[in-house]
Simulated scan of single mutants.
Amino acid sequence: MTEDDVEKLGDHIASLPMKTMDEKESAKRFDLLILQLQLGLLNEDTSWAKNRQRVEKIADELLTVSENLPFVAAASKTLEALLDSEWWEGVTIPELEKVRREIRDLVEFVPRHKRQVVVLDVEDEFGDIAEVDLPVEHAAVGVNVSRVEEELRASLDDHRDSLAMQKLRTARPLTESDVEDLETMVADTGLEGVDEVRESLGGDTIPAFVRRLVGLDEETMRAEFADLLEGSTLTANQISFIRHVIKVLVNNGGLTMQEAFDESFYPYGRVSDLFQDNQAVVLDLKSRLDRINATADVS
């Protein structure tokens, strides 16, 4: 290689990787997520469904902030399409690439935490500065809950074909042996911070905890509510609400009626308003949710 060649490389090639240095980490992670989906279209991949759920979750969370962020609202049509199962049927690599380009810079606006704002009006008073020894037993060790949660999901995904996991994800009753198998799966991950993740998700039993991580099987949940959606007399908004319930069950692994009644659960109306003339459906919905949630306990 001549000196002229080296100079050309320095001028035109060496700086190329640096162009991505200023990009948000969230955008690059979304790029990777879409790439994994595109590769999954070329070669069958067991993680494809889980990656799709992650994209759907991102789209859903972005829609919750779209009213306050005009640049997110501008992508609402695409975000809503990502929540429609029909869009995913026969999806192509170019379509996924279009999603990547449109959404990648918005991912950083996904709300990470719901913080309670506390305002304090305190007047500082400084005394003499003193050095204090902090006992080791009082020292706190930080745990990156999000990272541990992602590693847990990936590890549990390896057990997707086990009988206990299949029963858990299809809302079938569990035996004590199934629960022991699930406890072993969690223990075998060997990850530090599992208790913190479990606490952040509500301190559930091990089966309920695992199901919050892996979600419920979409086909099973659609079958569970098929009679409500097919040939029913429900309005378009009511049908849309039931579909939203199914999506939440698939992504979160469970849903209580109290959560469904929450004002923030469904952006286009509360249960009490949507079904005010059809309370029988509300009672039916509660019965179905109770049954699904109960399958995370030992029968």
Rank of each mutant, 00 (worst) to 15 (best):
Y266H: 05
E183T: 11
V107L: 03
D227E: 13
V117P: 07
V141E: 07
A260K: 03
A208T: 07
P111S: 08
L228M: 12
L16V: 10
D277Y: 11
I93V: 14
A14H: 10
V179P: 01
R288Y: 03
I239E: 15
R101N: 15
D181E: 13
L96Q: 04
D262E: 15
P135M: 00
F209L: 00
L120W: 13
E7I: 13
S26A: 10
E183C: 08
T175I: 07
S26P: 02
L79I: 03
Q116L: 12
D4I: 14
R115K: 11
E125A: 12
D178S: 01
E97D: 11
D5L: 09
S177Y: 08
Q116T: 14
H113R: 14
R288W: 04
H244Y: 10
N51G: 06
A154T: 14
P17E: 00
L33A: 01
S26R: 05
G231R: 02
L35P: 04
V282F: 05
D158Q: 14
E149F: 05
E199T: 12
V110H: 02
M165W: 00
H159C: 04
E23V: 11
V148R: 03
V91I: 13
R101A: 14
M257A: 10
T175V: 08
V117D: 12
E102W: 06
A226C: 07
S162F: 02
E137A: 08
V248D: 05
E80F: 04
I58P: 00
W87I: 00
V136Q: 12
E56D: 07
V210N: 00
A236H: 10
A74L: 10
A154K: 09
L216M: 09
H159D: 05
A154L: 12
N252G: 11
D31M: 03
I246D: 01
E219C: 07
E219H: 08
